[in-house]
Design a protein around this nucleic acid. Structure first.
Length: 584
RNA sequence: GCGAGCGUAGCACAAUGGAUAGUGUAGUGGCCUCCGAAGCCAUUGAUCCGGGUUCGACUCCCGGCGCUCGCACCA
């Protein structure tokens, strides 16, 4: 028997078969296979405890009964019954070696993982900045988390559509066009066009606030735009083109590439159908002049309306989001849609999903799995949303530039002898990766404190610590005159020392980490695995010399080094980080 | 007011109802004649309060307290 990519799933399958044989399955036995604390083994099955309790059986006797049926697993596992009825599985060293020999590259790891969601189509809605404004720190999390989720879903076999649902339509364009027609600075526009549009946007907003006549003019410009006025449409298009080009620079640095950018304007001509359908199926009603949806069974949404058409007859983001769900279901035929949007919009998302569920049910449509991938706020050291000293939003381009500068200073301090161009290249990787990883290494649901010192200090669970492990492994190969692409690992023996074993066992948990991160749409589970892997490597590296004379020992330690490199890189790539550095 | 989320060592975080609540940082004490010390080893220190469910609760339920966010036409 060859060992499967995900050992826990294999154990689950075997245990279910045993449960069937023992007549437990039809009474609801669940194996409950979990990754175990290393002190207890590699995996544990907890199912006997709950089942025995429910069926009034002795849990240890039941556990023993199950263990007695697991003879076929003895080749690969040391199996024991422990405590009140835990079944512990410890992989044998030879099995660890076999697993490591099989999963020897990023491609093979992916091949192993790709069965989980084969045949599924997912659309991921992330980033979604508004045009005419610079991307700022508030846009960071959606972009970074969204990209990681796309990669995780694709890795587990899904077809993924990356959709940038940009805010390219709305009432702000009235004020903006008003300002463009009166205050455009051609020189500034030629220099940094987005900067100029942002200035005009602020100017237009202020002017409209101060003077009702301006507001009226701006509203007129908006109506002209909406009714297809050629001049206003041209300005609008110019603004969007300029904005997208500026966004693209940021996306390039973050390793993001979208498949489609279907912004709000794309859905302009699709909202009338929403009003009609929702009214016809009895979900929508008039209230205070607006078209709204109430949910009588819901404690809050029975009185808090979901406004899908404003009293002035215009669409809003609810109408547009409903049209978007329909388009994704009809045109892309998605099985799932993940919305990477901050937690403050939870009410909106709840109302959107609730309404969609009822609407699709009434119209006989298949409902995709709808997931709000929410996330908290990026905070400053004062515990408030991160801003500049004068209270402005921090621009993403400035933030990323500072990250690279700080990384450059650090690399230069550590390795002043590296050529400057190389130090720059290293800083580009380390700086951006540090920002990305600071976000991805913790549970997305909570707010997080943005602290340069912690994220680039290179201590603890940081990108630099992981990349340092990558650099050290490359260094071992380089110094020994070996190629990481052709590791000389023939004749490797099974891991022996405690540090080799700990590292090998950690390597085998990659699949569990990917599965957990993907299943929960929480990338930090993968980050945590990579951090623990890098730690296990550092411990191994300090304890066991790799380049030794004994060919078998040398081959197996090189094998461990190589697989650590492969997994660290595969994992970091899954999180959207670059790893292309030889040394740092 | 109603609703949602969050309260874990000085600080920053982790824990898919499981075994002795993990890690980083800060503190203390060790380790470079040896493949990179941006490292390794050891050690001090925590579940907001009160009930409940469970063989077992940071996790689930109820009630407090505290912080954050949302609540009619911005997205």
């Amino acid at each position: 028997m060859s060992l499967p990519f995900n050992v826990a799933n294999h154990l689950d399958t075997v245990l279910r078969a045993v449960a069937t044989k023992l007549g437990l399955a039809d009474r609801g036995f669940q194996p409950e296979v979990r990754v175990a604390d290393p002190a207890n083994g590699d995996y544990q099955a907890n199912g006997a405890l709950a089942f025995a309790k429910r069926e009034k059986l002795n849990p240890r006797a039941l556990g023993q009964q199950i263990v007695d049926q697991l003879g076929g697993l003895q080749e690969h596992f040391d199996i024991s019954l422990a405590g009140p009825g835990f079944i512990n599985f410890r992989l044998r060293p030879a099995t660890l070696l076999a697993w490591l020999q099989t999963y020897d590259s990023e491609e093979h790891l992916q091949a192993g993982a790709a069965s989980a969601r084969r045949g599924q189509t997912w659309i991921v809605d992330y980033s979604a900045p508004n045009t005419a404004k610079q991307m700022h720190v508030g846009h960071l999390r959606s972009a970074v988390i969204g990209e990681a989720i796309c990669r995780l879903l694709a890795f587990s076999g899904a077809k993924v559509i990356r959709d940038n649902h940009i805010g390219d339509w709305g009432t702000q364009f009235g004020k903006l066009i008003w300002a463009c027609k009166r205050h455009l600075d051609a020189t500034a526009l030629a220099g940094d066009p987005l900067e100029e549009f942002e200035r005009l946007y602020k100017l237009g907003t202020k002017a409209a606030e101060a003077d009702p006549a301006v507001l009226a003019e701006a509203q007129h410009e908006l109506v002209k735009l909406q009714t297809g006025d050629a001049e206003n449409l041209a300005i609008w298009k110019k603004i969007n083109d300029v904005s997208l080009a500026a966004f693209q620079v940021i996306y390039g640095q973050l390793g993001i590439r979208f498949d489609v950018s279907l912004g709000e304007s794309f859905y302009n001509d699709k909202v009338a159908r929403i009003y009609r359908e929702l009214t016809e199926c009895g979900l929508a009603q008039e209230s205070q002049g607006a078209l709204v949806v109430f949910h009588p069974e819901h404690p809050r949404f029975k009185t808090q309306p979901f406004i899908i058409r404003k009293k002035d007859g215009a669409a809003n983001y609810a109408s547009s989001d409903l049209a978007t769900v329909l388009y994704r279901a009809e045109h892309f035929k998605v099985d799932g849609a993940a919305y990477v949007i901050d937690f403050r919009q939870s009410d909106h998302m709840d109302q959107l999903f609730l309404t969609t569920r009822k609407w699709f049910e009434k119209t006989g449509r298949k409902l995709p799995q709808l997931e709000h991938v929410d996330f908290g706020t990026v905070l400053g050291g004062d515990g408030k949303p991160l801003k500049t000293r004068n209270g402005e939003n921090i621009r993403l381009k400035d933030l990323l530039a500072e990250a690279r500068e700080r990384a450059f200073a650090l690399v230069s301090g550590k390795n002043p002898d590296f050529p400057e161009a190389e130090r720059r290249a290293i800083a580009d990787v380390v700086g951006v990766a540090s920002v990305q990883y600071a976000d991805l290494s913790q549970n997305r649901s909570s707010d997080y404190v943005f602290a340069w010192d912690k994220m680039i200090s290179l201590e603890g669970n940081t990108a630099a610590y992981l990349l340092y492990a990558v650099a050290r492994i490359r260094s071992i190969f380089r110094k020994a005159g070996l190629d990481t692409g052709q590791p000389p690992v023939a004749g490797a023996t099974a891991p022996e020392s405690p540090q080799e074993l700990a590292l090998a066992r950690k390597l085998g948990k990659f699949s569990d980490a990917v599965q957990l991160a993907t299943g929960t749409l929480r990338p930090h589970f993968l980050g945590l695995h990579l951090y623990e892997l890098a730690g296990a490597f550092s411990t191994f590296y300090a304890a066991d010399k790799v380049i030794v004379d004994d060919p078998a020992v040398r081959a197996r330690r090189l094998l461990l080094c190589h697989r650590t490199l492969v997994e660290l890189e595969a994992g970091l790539h899954l999180l959207g980080l670059r790893t292309d550095l030889e040394r740092m």
